[in-house]
Simulated scan of single mutants.
Amino acid sequence: MAEQNVITSMLDDLSQEQPIHTALCIGQQIDQNASIQWHHFNVTDFLSLPFTQRYDLGFVLFDTDEMQTINDTQKAQLLVKLRDLMAKRIVVVSKLSDEKLLRSLGFTQLIDKTAHDSDFALWQFNILTYKHVPDWFNSKFWANPENWDKFRW
């Protein structure tokens, strides 16, 4: 029951940042929020699913019995397809042993693993906050329009 409360409060927090209308869940059937249209898939169905739409949220539970049977390659394929094609934002509930895979795919940790004694971690990927744009990456430092009539390049 506590897990459902955590998922509900997390969905409320994510909805406040960006509206969530459609969500994709892999690993377990979740229907926590009635305002969100949920679509559930198992791993094999999802990996063979053609791209038809981009969902607002992808929710993956690596801590279920179904997910224990897949290997790291299938986990990486699932996350990459979800990240690159299917979802704008992804939340992953995983074991601590999946940290290396998730970090290598650009996920950031939501719950510090040292703050609890359980073998789980909560990760997210949001394309809007994935990379901070550096100050030098703008037209001010590239085109130099103030020098167009002064120097011959």
Rank of each mutant, 00 (worst) to 15 (best):
K88Q: 09
H132N: 13
F107D: 05
D149K: 13
N144W: 10
A115Q: 14
D135Q: 15
S118L: 11
A143E: 10
N138E: 06
P145T: 07
F151S: 05
N138Q: 07
A87K: 00
K150L: 15
F141T: 08
R103C: 01
E146L: 09
T129K: 03
E146V: 12
D117C: 06
I90C: 02
A87Q: 01
P145H: 07
I90D: 01
F120L: 07
K140F: 09
L96D: 06
A143K: 15
I90K: 00
Q124N: 10
L96Y: 05
S118E: 14
T114K: 12
K113M: 14
Q109V: 12
D84W: 01
N144L: 15
A121M: 06
S104L: 06
D112Y: 11
R152S: 10
Q124A: 11
L96T: 15
A87W: 00
L122G: 07
L128D: 14
N144I: 06
L85H: 00
Y130K: 03
T114A: 04
D84I: 01
Q109R: 15
V93K: 12
K100W: 08
D135P: 09
P145S: 06
W142R: 10
A121G: 14
T114V: 03
L110I: 09
K100T: 15
F107Q: 02
I127V: 14
N147G: 10
L85P: 00
S97N: 08
Q109K: 13
L110H: 03
T129G: 02
D119W: 12
S97Y: 14
S104P: 05
V133K: 09
L85N: 00
D119I: 10
S94M: 07
K88P: 02
W142E: 08
L96F: 07
K100V: 09
H132Y: 02
R83E: 01
Y130G: 00
K140Y: 09
